[in-house]
């Protein structure tokens, strides 16, 4: 692929991509804003100057949600990319170990019990973490001598499917007039209603993303399998759980702020690989950059395409599924070798 050879421009283009999409996304919408007006609004926010109503709407409504979309996109893509390496499987996505279904259950239950936005977010996050802890516990019971990746995946499937059943049960008992639609819409994913205060979760995203980016090259070695990684001097238990902890944190946080958004964590890493090659030293930063741009485009589409906002998971699936098919067509030897 010719893109692989343009080594000087490639990182610059990848870094410019989310910035350009950000500028685009901020300027379009129900109230279009010119680039000049955008700059003066941002300057007014930073310098604390007086703002017009339009500027306020831009900074208080549109800016937080665009930034959160980028954070969520980067987080889901990073988690998906490291999981594909860690579990040596190209069709793995961040929900593999139950983080997504746990977070969904947390949200569904708290909506059922009448929690407010902050409560829903908190219990959703907690649910994701607890689900993966449960997977880790089951894995320990199953593989007492040495933890194996296959056992871990099976425990993840088990917990995911159990928690999904519990989500269905929550919906089943929910009030069909008020609670059921609330749960359903929440699960389909949306970023509308994001405020500047919601951006505080960035300080939880940041350390987890940083750790994943620091261990990025080691993922290459973990990818070779347990025995080989150990023979190359890698402490596989340490790295495996460090990566799972970070990916779980990122996935649970993402679901808790934006609902259940599929496909991003599966498709973006493959797109990144098409551009930069398979080396995780490059795949992870590229996934984060492409993921943030992609998620922001999806969210922009969500608020632009129709008078009523379209749930994010619908758009990601509509884009993701054909793209995945394209990858299947393109691969020479079959996707999973």
């Amino acid at each position: 692929m010719s893109l692989k050879k343009t080594t000087i421009w490639q990182p610059l283009i990848l870094i410019a991509l989310p910035i350009l999409v950000l500028a685009f996304s901020l300027s379009v919408g129900r109230y279009p804003v010119s680039i000049d007006a955008l700059a003066s609004a941002l300057w007014a926010q930073i310098s604390g100057g007086k703002m017009t109503t339009a500027q306020l709407a831009l900074v208080r409504v549109r800016l937080p949600r665009t930034l959160l979309a980028m954070i969520v996109g980067a987080a889901l893509s990073l988690s998906g990319a490291v999981y594909q390496g860690l579990f040596k499987n190209p069709v793995v996505s961040p929900d593999l170990l139950g983080a997504t279904s746990g977070a969904s259950l947390g949200a569904a239950l708290s909506i059922l019990l009448g929690a407010r936005a902050a409560g829903i977010q908190f219990f959703s996050f907690l649910g994701g973490i607890l689900a993966v802890l449960l997977v880790a516990l089951l894995d320990r019971l199953v593989s007492r001598r040495a933890s194996s990746v296959v056992n871990l995946i099976l425990c993840g499937m088990l917990v995911s499917s159990l928690f999904n059943a519990l989500v269905s049960f929550t919906k089943f008992v929910a009030d069909t007039e008020t609670k059921l639609p609330a749960i359903t819409f929440w699960l389909m994913g949306t970023l509308s209603g994001t405020t500047l205060k919601d951006l505080g979760v960035f300080w939880l995203f940041l350390p987890a993303c940083t750790i994943l980016l620091l261990v990025r090259w080691k993922v290459n070695i973990l990818f070779l399998g347990d025995d080989e990684a150990r023979m190359l001097g890698v402490n596989i238990t340490l790295y495996r759980w460090l990566i799972i902890a970070c990916a779980t944190l990122l996935t649970s946080l993402s679901v808790s702020v934006s609902g259940n958004i599929g496909w991003i964590g599966l498709v973006v890493p493959h797109f990144a690989r098409m551009v930069v090659g398979s080396n995780y030293g490059k795949v992870l930063p590229a996934s984060a950059l492409i993921g943030s741009a992609f998620m922001l485009l999806v969210d922009t589409a969500a608020r632009m395409l129709h008078t009523v906002e379209i749930p994010l998971s619908i758009i990601t699936a509509v884009i993701g599924a054909p793209f995945f098919f394209f990858l299947l067509l393109r691969s020479k030897k079959g996707f999973v070798s």
């Binding site: 070779l224 080989e228 190359l232 090659g277 070798s337």
Partner: peptide, 23 residues
């Protein structure tokens, strides 16, 4: 350890594979 030559699902370059030995 030199394992039997196997094929990973993602195409690494030869150089990227060898440099893993430096770990």
């Amino acid at each position: 350890y030199v394992p039997q030559g196997h094929i990973p699902p993602f195409p690494y370059t030869v150089r990227d594979v060898v440099v893993m030995g430096c770990n």
